[in-house]
Amino acid sequence: MIRTNVDFLTYIELLNEKYPNFFLIENYNPKEVILKQQKRYQSLYIIKNGITKCYLSDENGKEFIQEFLGKGMEFGELEVFSGNLSYCSIEAISKVVVYKISYKNYNYLLDNDRLFNRLVIKSMALKIGYKAPRHSFQQSYSIEENILKLKHNYPDYDKIFSKNDIANYLGITIRSLNRTLNGLK
């Protein structure tokens, strides 16, 4: 549920020492939006600490949470490669500290640092590899089974995430979530 990439974060911290002007450190408070869907940015972010949610909003304002991102996860990288507007919004769930890097410096590292390049490719592959099984499980199993899997993998999920976020992550209504939670008691 909360995706992390400690290897990538460890390497970013080394790069921050090597290239101190490449990275800015920014702080965000809970509920603060870091990236907005359908906006153009010139930087991307790597989470140093905290938890964010990555979500899409439809024309009616309904959110679908793609994933929760934690330490070492980057966001905004797809836009570097595609040149498109941001695909998703990113919002802080807890206090969040990020390394912010410009597209220019990111591309420099991609071109000149083989390990950085490899870690970026691996990170993107893991993101893709995570989504298909998650969506498949959510489609193939009942709400009860999805909640039991969440509880098994993240025993304190209900203390970290709001019911609204849990429902949006599972692609269900709050009413269905509440009814299921009451049935599981």
Rank of each mutant, 00 (worst) to 15 (best):
E32A: 13
E91G: 07
K62G: 01
N60Q: 08
I93D: 09
Q37L: 05
S82Q: 01
G76Y: 05
E63N: 14
E63G: 01
F23S: 07
P20A: 13
Y45G: 00
N29Y: 10
K48A: 04
I51L: 10
R40Q: 14
S86H: 01
Y41N: 09
T52Y: 01
I46F: 11
Y28S: 12
I46N: 09
Y19I: 06
T52P: 01
T52M: 02
F23L: 11
P20N: 11
K36I: 03
F22K: 11
L35Q: 12
L69R: 04
A92E: 03
D58A: 04
C88F: 14
L85S: 07
L85F: 06
F22V: 08
K31T: 15
L85K: 11
D58M: 01
F75V: 04
S57T: 05
N84H: 13
F75W: 01
K62T: 10
F64E: 02
Y55D: 02
L44C: 15
N49D: 15
C88W: 06
F64W: 01
K71E: 14
E63S: 12
G83T: 12
F64L: 05
Q37I: 02
A92C: 07
E63P: 00
E63A: 06
Y87F: 13
L56Q: 00
N60W: 00
E67Q: 08
E91T: 13
K71L: 04
L24Q: 15
E67D: 08
I25H: 03
F23V: 09
Y45M: 02
Y19G: 08
N84R: 13
Q37A: 05
L35W: 01
I46R: 03
N84E: 15
I51K: 11
F68D: 12
L56N: 00
Q37C: 06
K31E: 15
S57D: 00
F23H: 06
Y28D: 10
E59W: 00
K36V: 06
F22Y: 15
Y28W: 13
E79Q: 09
P20C: 10
N60A: 01
L85H: 03
P20L: 09
I93T: 06
K39A: 08
I65P: 03
K71M: 04
C54K: 05
G76I: 07
E67M: 04
V80Y: 03
F75T: 06
N60D: 08
G50A: 10
G76C: 08
F81C: 05
Y41H: 11
E77V: 07
C88H: 12
K36R: 12
E74S: 15
I34E: 08
Q37F: 06
G72E: 03
E79M: 08
F23R: 10
F23D: 06
Y28C: 12
Y87K: 11
I90W: 05
T52N: 04
I93F: 07
S43Y: 13
E26F: 09
N49E: 15
S57N: 01
N84P: 01
E74L: 09
E77P: 00
T52I: 13
I51G: 14
L24P: 04
F22E: 11
Y45L: 01
N27W: 08
F68V: 10
Y19M: 09
I25R: 12
I34F: 07
Y41E: 14
I25E: 08
S43K: 12
I51Y: 12
F81P: 03
Y41G: 12
N27H: 15
A92N: 03
L24F: 11
